[in-house]
Design a protein around this nucleic acid. Sequence first.
DNA 1: ATCTAAGCGAGACGGTACGTCACGTCTTGGG
DNA 2: CCCAAGACGTGACGTACCGTCTCGCTTAGAT
Lengths: 194, 194, 194, 194
Amino acid sequence: MADEEKRGRPRDMAARRRVLTAAYALLEEGGVTALTMEAVAARAKVGKPMLYRSWPNAQALAMAALIEAAPDAPEDDGSGPALAALRRQVRFVVEVFASRIGRSAAALVASATRDTEIFKSFRSQVILSSRTVGRALISRAVEEGDIRPGIDVEAALDAIYGPVFFRVLVGHEGLDAGFADRLMDTVLEGLRPR
Amino acid sequence: MADEEKRGRPRDMAARRRVLTAAYALLEEGGVTALTMEAVAARAKVGKPMLYRSWPNAQALAMAALIEAAPDAPEDDGSGPALAALRRQVRFVVEVFASRIGRSAAALVASATRDTEIFKSFRSQVILSSRTVGRALISRAVEEGDIRPGIDVEAALDAIYGPVFFRVLVGHEGLDAGFADRLMDTVLEGLRPR
Amino acid sequence: MADEEKRGRPRDMAARRRVLTAAYALLEEGGVTALTMEAVAARAKVGKPMLYRSWPNAQALAMAALIEAAPDAPEDDGSGPALAALRRQVRFVVEVFASRIGRSAAALVASATRDTEIFKSFRSQVILSSRTVGRALISRAVEEGDIRPGIDVEAALDAIYGPVFFRVLVGHEGLDAGFADRLMDTVLEGLRPR
Amino acid sequence: MADEEKRGRPRDMAARRRVLTAAYALLEEGGVTALTMEAVAARAKVGKPMLYRSWPNAQALAMAALIEAAPDAPEDDGSGPALAALRRQVRFVVEVFASRIGRSAAALVASATRDTEIFKSFRSQVILSSRTVGRALISRAVEEGDIRPGIDVEAALDAIYGPVFFRVLVGHEGLDAGFADRLMDTVLEGLRPR
DNA sequence: ATCTAAGCGAGACGGTACGTCACGTCTTGGG
DNA sequence: CCCAAGACGTGACGTACCGTCTCGCTTAGAT
């Protein structure tokens, strides 16, 4: 383990970039099913063995591409009230997941084996990262007196982010800013101080 | 629509049953990826063309099998309070989706094209049917004075069922009766009369 | 055997005609591979079982269609010299086999099982019928003193008709009237009186 | 033509051999219809795509197998008279084509599309190669004074080899050494010096 | 400066499953 | 009791990707 020889030609970082870019483009164009190892190799002008050297299968590569490209949530600068920041963030999340890429991310989660490193990292960085932000904002809102103390924070986070994901995948009704707002109204009503 | 010619040999219902049973068994044993048309054909002693005559692809067949086998939600006999019935029903939904079959259903939704008849029927009968039950129970709870009038029912339903689906797929935390209860506590708090 | 019941609906002769016409048309349009039982049934507006009642398989049906449509060799009215009639007949045979239908007939022979009644009838009526005519003409030519007596007639017939069939199938060189003439020159040289 | 890129893993010659051997064996055992791509793949322990990489369809593969295995005509050492060598060679050809493999070769010619490279090569190496030998022997026989000069050599070759092929396919009468001899007697009579 | 080990692209390999086609049989309802 | 229509089990078709493997060519760190 400690040895880690480093002779020979090093990995080609430019090729790696080409691969991730190609993978992302395929996801954008045709969704999860369009991302085949063959297509990525062809588009990135790369051999298949090179892909398998870095990622064990197509899902892993897709996840890596999405992790790479995941947009950061808008920074909370702490200036305004936390509740408003939380509303803004949920709107942002809705917007991201409404795109084809968001659907791809959701579909990947649904079909993946859950015991791999890459999956866990994908889950935390792409699917759950907004939850982390939300958790911090809820804490601040409690301090600001807009949410009462003692609530079950995890359950609250589920109630906020779960429905977004649900609609992304099930598509039974639209995903837009109005939805984000109504959802927040309903949930926050249960969280405000009595 | 009214025409509907009915000449020729009719579909063989026994074979159809064998197919759906085989498909369900495969889903149970190995999840979505185990359900291949070849495997179903072999296990049901049926030719592949027969499968394609009735279902356009493996997902559609999987959905049909799940629709066929979908357990009915526990009947609400209207005897007790609606809120209690709602809690019971959410527990039931959590339990169903925690099984391999539940995960298969969720994964199918995630990967399917949404414009087909079979998908819409699958969505309403397997994924959203609990929502319908929940909607009725909320109405009754309003009449019973346990939920205040004027709330956004759809948003409330999303807040209840969304998180279940979310956890099924993302698997970031456990799915059990305790989760169902904590979730209901949080959401109902926002719905009760002021 | 002697019973020969004749109850029930009689065979539909019009349908039979439609079938043979359809089969012939398919042979003309796409050759042997285009004549499938399904295509014939569809084009003749006939059920497949009806086809199988009369012909055991596609080749048999094709043969029947070709037998039905086989052009009769030009009648030898016995007026002119037999040798000239023979030359005319060979030219005619060459012409017939140079068409797509001729090739189909040849290909059928090549691929067929040889022990069936229909094959034997096809062989004699479509492939070998010209031989019969030729045999008679050779006899007359012997009487007329243009061919010497005592030759091996069957070998001579093979030497005349074999090459035609050969070129039809192998297609190494053209099939035309000039070929027919050169062939006859060569063979007849060996048959003339010494 | 001169380019001929040679990158990537080279074709596996051992596998190629296995395929051709399997194909030949199937032809021998069951004739043309027994040679299916699936059967060859199974017997040669090879994937179907590998077959399609090298041959566009079953007929092409069959042809390749027959070309590979085609027995060379007995060498003409030039010692004896050319006419005798020609008789020997025709006997040999008759013998080869009387076998199941010979019939397969003939049937392939009959059913094939004629515009492909593989067909042309098959025709010249399997069907027409004997003709080439025969052409040379006729030339020598002319020099030796056993055949008169000025005859139409191609017509003569057709008269010799055409009937063999004819009988192979039509099977109206036996194919044996006696047939070969009688045929040669008839044809050579027309070729000898006057 | 030259080995030389590793990475590289290309692409063939044995497989699995796909979705389609035609086969030849069987089973309806209608004439 | 035949007919058309058409579903059935079978089996081959030709294609798409899978994940693994060998090639011959860079490329750069170690000798």
